Simulated assay, not measured.
Amino acid sequence: MSTSRGTRFDAFLSALAVLPSGYSQGDYFGERWGVTLERSADGRRIKLFGEALGSSDHVSFNLYRVAGEPRLKPCEMPAEKVIDFVLGFRPEAQKR
């Protein structure tokens, strides 16, 4: 997915910005997930890998900043799956 900007993609970027780096656990629509989020030191790459702790479901993607524009690269899954995940995932410290 390139820079197709819109309200939903902007919401995804905002939600991604507040997720904690490193490993965390949390809730995604009633299911417990473990997520590892890595940010490069220069801020040009974000890598996320998440897996459901009670099933075989997972989500994985890289987000690159090219000329200041975000480029979402899902790993063998639709972009909508990773966007839905980031919008719905609640790390333990952020559960409501």
Rank of each mutant, 00 (worst) to 15 (best):
M1T: 10
R8I: 11
D10P: 01
D10S: 14
A11G: 06
A11Y: 04
F12T: 00
S14K: 15
A15E: 08
A15Y: 02
L16E: 07
L16R: 08
L16G: 12
A17Y: 02
V18T: 13
L19P: 06
P20W: 10
P20T: 05
P20Q: 07
S21K: 08
G22V: 00
G22P: 05
Y23P: 00
Q25I: 09
Q25H: 13
G26P: 06
Y28L: 15
E31C: 09
R32L: 14
R32A: 14
R32C: 10
L37W: 02
L37I: 11
E38N: 11
R39Q: 09
S40L: 04
A41F: 07
A41R: 12
A41S: 12
R44K: 14
R44A: 10
R45V: 09
R45T: 11
F49M: 11
F49N: 11
A52P: 09
A52K: 11
L53R: 11
G54N: 14
S56M: 12
D57L: 15
H58S: 14
V59W: 00
V59H: 03
S60D: 12
F61A: 06
F61R: 06
L63Q: 02
R65M: 14
R65A: 09
R65D: 05
L72M: 05
P74T: 07
C75M: 11
E76F: 10
E76R: 14
P78I: 03
P78H: 10
A79W: 01
E80K: 08
V82R: 00
V82A: 01
V82Y: 00
D84E: 13
F85D: 00
G88A: 15
R90Q: 15
P91V: 10
A93N: 02
K95W: 11
